[in-house]
Amino acid sequence: MRSFNNLVINEWLKMSKKRSFFIPYAIIAVVAVVLAWIFKRWAGDMVGSAFDYTTMMSSTSGFGQFTAMLAVIFTAGLVSGEHGQGTIKFLLIRGQSRGKVLASKYVAALLFALSLIVWLNVASFASGAILFGTEHSSGAWRDILIASGSSLVYSIVYMTLGFMMGVLTRSTGAAMGVGMAAIVLSSLTIPKSFYKYVLFPNVDLSIYSHGGHPPIEGMTLPFSIVILAVYIVLFLGASFVTFKKRDIA
């Protein structure tokens, strides 16, 4: 377990040493401040407090979807980049199993996605508190948790898809392109019963909050959770099987 933790820490350190590492955080901070000022300047009545603003920004219909794109873009090359630079061989000759090496990269990607959502909440709340105040209703914290949780699941699903494509194709461009295309297609809904088993209509769990109605009859929150779990298992299964069997040389 200790060796695995060291692998995860090593992956995080490698990510943080990249010049582009802090760009997503900077983008989120700037957008949070600018949008808060815009709403205050031209739509002051639309946002009641920092809680309302944070909920709006963290939701998948707000900036949460763009945060998922940032996660996909940054983590797309975790595996394919190692292949391109030839450094994957050095990771595998250190006595660690291929499964542990790949799992450490995936855990680092999960931590990155989580950190983006947390930072989005912090930046949004700080901006909102300054411009809108902190008065809130009894369910304000719950709304933020629901919005943030839904966006985190949304990010993880598409990041896992991009992660799989990076393993299968060894191409950062392909991993990034497929992940981004999937996010764009997530808004597509086909009003047919079979479509409820497809990834896209299930990935946004926020549709079930506050009595919302799913896009296709027969969909429920437990149903969507099971569908997403199945897809994630399939994505990771394909990734690990391919990574373990493929010739690295």
Rank of each mutant, 00 (worst) to 15 (best):
S3P: 02
F4S: 02
L7M: 13
K17V: 11
K18V: 10
K18M: 15
S20E: 09
P24L: 12
A32M: 06
V33Y: 13
V33T: 08
V34K: 05
A36E: 04
W37P: 02
R41G: 03
S49Y: 14
S49V: 03
Y53E: 05
T54D: 06
T55L: 14
M56G: 03
S59C: 12
T60M: 03
T60Y: 00
S61G: 12
G64T: 01
F66V: 07
T67Q: 00
F74D: 06
T75I: 13
H83C: 12
G86P: 06
T87A: 15
I88Q: 07
K89G: 00
L92R: 04
L92M: 03
R98D: 03
G99P: 11
K100D: 00
L102H: 08
K105V: 09
Y106E: 11
V107I: 15
A109P: 01
L114V: 10
S115T: 02
I117N: 09
L120N: 11
S124L: 14
A129M: 14
L131A: 04
L131G: 10
G133P: 01
E135K: 15
H136S: 07
S137N: 02
S138V: 09
S138Y: 14
A140H: 14
W141R: 01
D143H: 09
I144A: 05
A147L: 01
A147I: 02
V153A: 00
V153T: 04
S155T: 06
V157A: 14
T160I: 07
L161Y: 03
G162V: 05
G173F: 12
G179D: 10
M180Y: 12
A182S: 13
S186E: 02
S187M: 11
T189M: 11
I190K: 06
P191L: 05
K192Y: 12
K192M: 04
K196M: 01
V198R: 01
V203K: 13
D204P: 04
S206D: 03
I207A: 14
H210F: 09
G211Y: 03
I216K: 01
G218Y: 07
M219Y: 04
T220W: 05
P222T: 02
F223A: 01
F223Q: 06
V226M: 05
V230G: 13
Y231N: 11
V233N: 01
V233T: 02
L234S: 04
F235Y: 00
G237A: 13
F240K: 06
F240Y: 13
F243H: 07
K245A: 13
R246Y: 12
